[in-house]
Design a protein around this nucleic acid. Structure first.
Lengths: 181, 181
DNA sequence: TGGTTATGTCAACAGGTGTTGGCCTACAGT
DNA sequence: ACTGTAGGCCAACACCTGTTGACATAACCA
């Protein structure tokens, strides 16, 4: 065989992730993705059923939050901000969810799921009052996602120009306060 | 005459703002907008030239930042956060820019313009070091836009559930620190 | 009353979209 | 050598998009 089906599936998925990340759901066309992967559009349908199926496969993402029990309590904020910056820059998944979640309800739902399921428990483990945990997780999400939005999507010049250390220095205390009062 | 052209233009613009705000640029079709306004799609072209022209008219927006010289320096953060919440909930313009700016470069450029031109000078007037002003304005943008994103677009449940006072209480000190160290 | 103009509709265009089914064709197993 | 099959392509479908130009009709002015 010229190529194994797994290779082709992987090539399609890689192309899809790039297109969804840079163009959003509607502007990322199956024809463009197939062209990037070097195959016919009908192959996309064969392997992923339809556009939604392809998107579901491409938008798979995990925050991979670090174990914060290992770090001193006062360093939680800075550690988390640094982790988010790393995660963001090494995986397109977050970019896909942000670009598509704004106009696509399915993607928005997935984003809600990721943040409540992963940031919520983390906040619960850190805080004293378990009732406040969801609010604390939500506040953290606003700051972290806002940074991602301004830096990687909207590209506000001063935010793009900031160094990694600057960002950790400014946002760290904010997240620290949101999570630990 | 059955209707003055100004009335029709206004009806089209109102429908367009709603569609752009809720659907984003690509999914807000001229046909749907025209249908909402109760006229034929071709009227949209007559009055606004093309879809981009209509969008330019619909995405007109001003932050209307308050004069912060009047409020005590330590209340700047809370005042600003409260103002943003008001502005956001009373005007669809911000929603339009956020929903479209994520996938439409023109809208992103407009957003950059609004925040650098309006938040920048405000930060410069408040801070001591004028060199730091753009960074401070950028940081404020990340927190304020992040809140807007999570509360009004992604609708993260704990963020939606928060009251106006809670938000001001949590985000006020953050913005205060970003702007006045 | 007649004519001009402003407001509006209709039908069609050219192109792009997701999606489908039939048809190749090169390889693997026998 | 023959056959079955997995990987891939092609052409077409039905629909939707922005956009255009020709045509209708009501209201005003002379």
């Amino acid at each position: 065989m010229r190529r194994t089906s797994e290779d082709t599936k992987a090539a399609i998925l890689a192309a899809a992730r790039e297109r969804f990340a840079s163009d959003g759901y509607e502007r990322a066309t199956i024809r463009a993705i197939a062209s990037d992967a070097g195959i016919d559009p009908s192959m996309v349908m064969r392997y992923y059923g339809n556009k939604d199926g392809l998107f579901a496969a491409a938008a798979d993402f995990d925050l991979r939050l670090p174990d914060l029990e290992a770090v001193p309590r006062e360093a939680v904020g800075r550690t988390l901000v640094a982790h988010f910056l790393d995660r963001w820059e090494s995986d397109e998944g977050m970019m896909i969810l942000l670009r598509t979640g704004v106009t696509n309800e399915g993607a928005a739902e997935r984003m809600r799921g990721i943040f409540t399921a992963q940031l919520g428990p983390l906040a619960a483990r850190l805080g004293t009052d378990p009732v406040q945990a969801p609010v604390r997780a939500g506040l953290t999400a606003t700051q972290v996602l806002g940074m991602a939005l301004c830096r990687y999507v909207l590209r506000l010049p001063p935010v793009v120009a900031m160094s990694r250390e600057e960002i950790v220095g400014w946002l760290g205390p904010t997240v620290q306060r949101y999570l630990t009062d």
